[in-house]
């Protein structure tokens, strides 16, 4: 490679890789839309006590399964509870489950993956085979088995999802660490006198954050669906506390007589998952080192 074929000195001086990615992300219209929607849902979840029009668990025999009206925009459920209020409070459970379980998966998976990729040898073989074995079981089946084993509760569902989602991060971190380990700058780090742990944390980790970030956003979407599925099966959020999955669960008996009970949480899951996916795709494009066009 000759010096002339390298990247030209950019016009914007002193721009860090992170800022450059942000600039490119902001030019990606759908991704920004996704981010805005995600942000809106986060705000709704945080502000639930103030914006929910009714108490989400207060029942009323006077208004059972009422269709949407001015008083109850999304109608009421089989116990006379306001669907909109339950949806708003349910956002807490769903987003929490998505974010916390993926955070857990990252915290479990990335250090193990880094270790496998950088240590190599039998350490790598053992870790990789375990990750492969876990990945060979369908995601939901494993999550359901773990959640059932741990007992029905939202915390246990999150833990189950975190463990189930972690092998993907092990594999990703291992692959990226292997790539990084063969580069000159990692060898340079070694030749300067960096101990292995410092090379891993100071040099390798920051360079593999972009793909991990992309994977995390996409995994949050999956985790939200998983939490909804577990709650639907009665393994996640326990009644009477609301979550989108458990709302769908109780709505299935009234699909013909009161479809709004299923439509509202179903649409909420759909929109949030779509928003996270759009955001993830945008992040992937913005952080792709080869994507110099944007």
């Amino acid at each position: 490679m000759s010096a002339a074929t390298g990247p030209a000195v950019t016009a914007s001086a002193g721009e860090s890789p992170g800022r450059r990615a942000l600039r490119r992300f902001l030019r990606h219209r759908l991704a920004v839309f996704g981010a805005v929607v995600v942000l809106a849902f986060v705000l709704v979840a945080l502000l639930a006590p103030w914006i929910a029009p009714y108490d989400p668990i207060e029942t009323s025999w006077a208004r059972i399964r009422r269709p949407p009206s001015e008083a109850h925009w999304f109608g009421t459920d089989e116990n006379g509870r306001d669907v909109l209020s339950r949806l708003i409070w349910g956002a807490r459970a769903s987003l929490m489950a998505g974010v916390v379980s993926v955070l857990g998966a990252v915290l479990i998976g990335v250090p193990i993956g880094l270790l496998a990729g950088l240590a190599g040898g039998w350490v790598d073989t053992v870790i990789s085979r375990i990750a492969d074995a876990m990945l060979s079981v369908p995601f939901l089946i494993l999550a359901i088995a773990l959640a059932a084993f741990l007992g029905p509760a939202l915390e246990n569902a999150m833990l189950a999802i975190a463990i189930t989602a972690s092998p993907i991060f092990v594999r990703l971190a291992r692959g990226m660490a292997l790539d990084a380990a063969s580069t000159d700058w990692v060898e340079a780090a070694r030749s300067l006198g960096n101990p292995p742990w410092r090379t891993a944390l100071v040099h390798v980790l920051p360079n593999i954050v972009p793909p991990l970030l992309v994977q995390s956003t996409l995994a949050i979407a999956e985790a939200i669906i998983a939490e909804a599925s577990l709650s639907f099966l009665g393994l996640g959020q326990q009644p009477p506390a609301p979550s989108w999955g458990s709302m769908l669960n109780s709505a299935q008996r009234f699909l013909e007589t009161a479809p709004w009970l299923a439509i509202a949480p179903g649409a909420a899951i759909f929109v949030v998952v779509l928003a996270f996916n759009l955001m993830g795709d945008g992040l992937r494009d913005a952080l792709d080192p080869r994507g110099t066009r944007r």
Binding site: T183, W185, L192, H203, N207
Partner: peptide, 28 residues
Amino acid sequence: QLIFQDPFASLDPRMTVEQAVAEPLRLH
């Protein structure tokens, strides 16, 4: 110390010049 052939590969892309040059100072 070692100087590498390809200067496009031998510097950590996520370290500023200052951080890169200061690293050996700090390590030792």
